[in-house]
Amino acid sequence: MPVEIDIAKVASLARIALSPEELRRYGDQLGAILEHAERVQQLPTAGIPPTSHPVPMTNAFRDDVVTGSLPLADVLAGAPEAEDGYFRVPPVLGDS
């Protein structure tokens, strides 16, 4: 059974503007892929810890040393729009 998903909500969370037609298509495709991915649920995993990192390591830190920053020209070189040393964007709606 393909998995039913609220694809519009997912697209909104992922911040991708999709047309109703695209939403429907991706929704169908994801449903089919998830039907396959759901197979992971067949394996009993009670008491099994998750693996987030394949090679167990801890405490990878760096010393508190200033190693420098990029020249401003490099920082803004790729900017779609810049003004007075700032990145410029259209007005921001929400607040976070």
Binding site: R88, V89, P90
Partner: peptide, 12 residues
Amino acid sequence: RIHDAEYSLLDF
């Protein structure tokens, strides 16, 4: 004010 702004500038 954020809601009336014409555009925004970002400093990282």
